[in-house]
Amino acid sequence: MENVIELQNVNKAFKGFELKDMSISVKKGFVTGFIGGNGVGKSTTIKLIMNLLQPDSGEISLFGLNYKKHEKEIKQRIGFVFDHNVFYEHITLAEMKKIIKPAYKNWDDTIFYQYVNLFELPLKKPIKTFSKGMMMKASLAFALSHRAELIIMDEPTSGLDPIFRRELLDILHDLMEDEEKTIFFSTHITTDLDRIADYITFIHNGQHIFTKEHYKIEEDYAIVKGETNLLDRDTEQEFLGIRKSNHGFEALTTNKKRTANLFGDTVILEKPTLEDIMLYTKKGNDNYAKSYS
């Protein structure tokens, strides 16, 4: 399967924050959800992918091309949506279109007006009067009007009401009918991903934890609930993170089968949500850090 985005051993350090040896690949023709808590490096990774930042070391390629030689060619094929407004605020949507349109070879006015009508966007009002939802719709209209093969979105659903979030996900879903298109988007509203994501890429503290097919996660991971007396030094090793209470323990396993064999009927295995996985990974990492520091 072809990769549209490929990061190989990418490192990027800032004051107090670091992306470490990040290797990610995003498959062509699928929706990949990019998850992780606040400040773990999602936006930095997206900026690296869009060449808004340069890595300290490592390779980044899009469509098999690198930015050093093919910057404009790559950007022609990307549609982007940011979580905040990046357009000039004092001008209208129609004027903004006049600025963006000549930048793209494949710009199509018909598609643009189609989305403007669909989203009921006013062409003649200054962009600063737009609500958060309208702003997002405007971004999306721009991102989709130049036949981009790859749509990159940084937290597109944050701050949106549930109804528009659904609408947005439906639009993305329709978009994926075209098998040539790829969507990569970051979010921390993990329920969004249940609806459309084919793959999940999870990062934590600047490190890539996993990229898996969405359905595979349920096959591998499980929430384990049982009596606290089942836990000892050995069995605790089975889990990524453990939460103990008076009623017993709850933990996350990355190997559902082995845990089932080990504990048998003494524990209950449940389907984890992505949020569970994020939470326990953070817990596990923190404990790991504590015990080794």
């Binding site: 950007k75 982007f80 000039y88 930048a103 793209y104």
Partner: peptide, 18 residues
């Protein structure tokens, strides 16, 4: 000055310009 805001820089650099 109009193009100095970080958000505008983000836009300009995301468009196919070097």
């Amino acid at each position: 000055a109009l193009d100095e805001k970080p958000s505008t820089n983000l836009l300009m650099n995301s468009l196919p310009y070097t």
